[in-house]
């Protein structure tokens, strides 16, 4: 496989119907690293995240204009199938959402089973174990793989969702506030996992927790909004260390030091 290329975002405008939600994002996301997105509520960081795998347009009336290049291919090219984009760019949501009708095993293999792809039994077992180990969940669930996924605790469910996402073997994993509903111990487990995952995947994580951003990420982007009804902007993106010690933008400094709002 060729060396991983960065995700190039050029002049991206994101709309909900007539409403311009995020304006003019230009950013390069480095491969095999963790990029955190921070900012106040409603500033468009989750919206931006969802445009990176075309999940944004699942909402009626929502669309995006501009260019997002993954491995040199613009995912907003009209010839691109969003389904293929999502197979390469996985996503973990704020609320853990395992499929309630499926066992733990089926949840992990959901990407294969829902797509009706044939897979040999041994390959399935290998994928199952690999993905669960990758999500640090194997030891906790290996004795009850056929029990319902909904029976796990909140933190385990979120790791199950991560296992499900990496079982599709994406190149990029997007995380939309994955720890906001979890207790500190589960949060720590997920953060450790993020550290391990960046060896293989490019990770973009949206978080409200600035300590979390400083703990897990290599680079941090700050989104802000001038006021309600106005579009959000990417104010600044830099190395996390730099962002939290010596931000170049006054807004970033205000937000990080808590003087904001």
């Amino acid at each position: 496989m060729a060396a991983p290329q960065p995700i190039n975002v050029e002049d991206l405008n994101i709309y909900y119907g007539d409403f311009l939600a995020v304006e003019g994002v230009d950013v390069q996301i480095r491969p095999r690293s963790v990029t955190a997105l921070i900012g106040p509520s409603g500033c468009g960081k989750s919206t931006f995240l969802r445009t990176l795998n075309r999940m944004h347009e699942v909402i009626p009336g929502a669309y995006a204009q501009g260019k997002v290049e993954i491995n040199g291919e613009n995912i907003y090219d009209p010839r691109v199938d969003p389904v293929n984009v999502r197979r390469r760019v996985g996503m973990v949501f704020q609320k853990a959402n395992p499929f309630p009708t499926m066992s733990i095993r089926d949840n992990v293999l959901a990407g294969v089973k829902l797509n009706s792809r044939r897979i040999s039994k041994s390959a399935a077992e290998e994928l199952l174990e690999g993905s669960l180990k990758g999500a640090n969940l194997w030891n906790e669930v290996k004795d009850r793989l056929d029990k319902p996924g909904m029976g796990l605790s909140g933190g385990q469910q979120q790791r199950l969702c991560i296992a499900r996402t990496i079982a599709v073997k994406p190149e990029v994993v997007l995380m939309d506030e994955p720890c906001s509903a979890l207790d500190p111990i589960s949060t720590l487990a997920i953060e450790d996992l993020v550290h391990e995952l960046k060896e293989e995947y490019t990770i973009v994580i949206v978080t409200h927790n600035m300590q979390q951003a400083s703990r897990v990420s290599d680079r941090t982007g700050f989104f802000n909004i001038a006021g309600t009804g106005k579009p959000g902007h990417l104010i600044e993106i830099d190395d996390t260390q730099q962002m939290f010690t010596n931000p170049s933008n006054k807004q970033t400094e205000d937000y990080i030091s808590g003087r904001f709002g």
């Binding site: 795998n53 999940m55 389904v83 999502r86 949501f93 959402n97 309630p100 959901a110 829902l114 797509n115």
Partner: peptide, 11 residues
């Protein structure tokens, strides 16, 4: 949530 989870897996 469930529909989105499924779409996000490329289904």
């Amino acid at each position: 949530d469930l529909r989105e989870a499924s779409y996000a897996l490329g289904v």
